[in-house]
Design a protein around this nucleic acid. Sequence first.
DNA 1: GCCAACGTTGGC
DNA 2: GCCAACGTTGGC
Length: 151
Amino acid sequence: MHHWLFKTEPHAYSFEQLRADRITPWTGVRNWQARNNMKAMEVGDLGFFYHSSIAQPCAVGICRVVKNAYPDFTQFDVQSEYYDATSRKERPKWYMVDVEYVEPLEHPVTLAQMRAEPRLDGMVLLRRGRLSVQPVTSREWEIVLGLAQQQ
DNA sequence: GCCAACGTTGGC
DNA sequence: GCCAACGTTGGC
């Protein structure tokens, strides 16, 4: 099993919303690296749910991949802000997975906390901040879970 | 709201 | 295929 991190602006889609929806398709990813990360996901993989673009950016919860990568329907929807006129149905450019609500972290783990933790030095979140769907190593996963249990 | 980082686009 | 210009993300 692999671990991941899903970044979202809570104004656009929050962990609370996922709790209400239970499952959501992770639409709108328009970055090749993030897309490739989703293609590498397998059903059952767990991810951190991360809230960005707020005063205290932080990981707030855990979610689970419940459907392997499949074409993101919003790329074909002219009404959608994610519409991509260059993508064709026979050969879709953009993929998404379905993620399911699992549970909140005991305490949110802020970006500042993660930066302050030397063992997380190599974390993609700290190195390539802009990538919206990221791999997390098993070691990093455990360390962040540990931080979530502190205060 | 600013702006650094960095991904993408397009001219050559 | 390089790289300058441009656009976007996201922390602060």
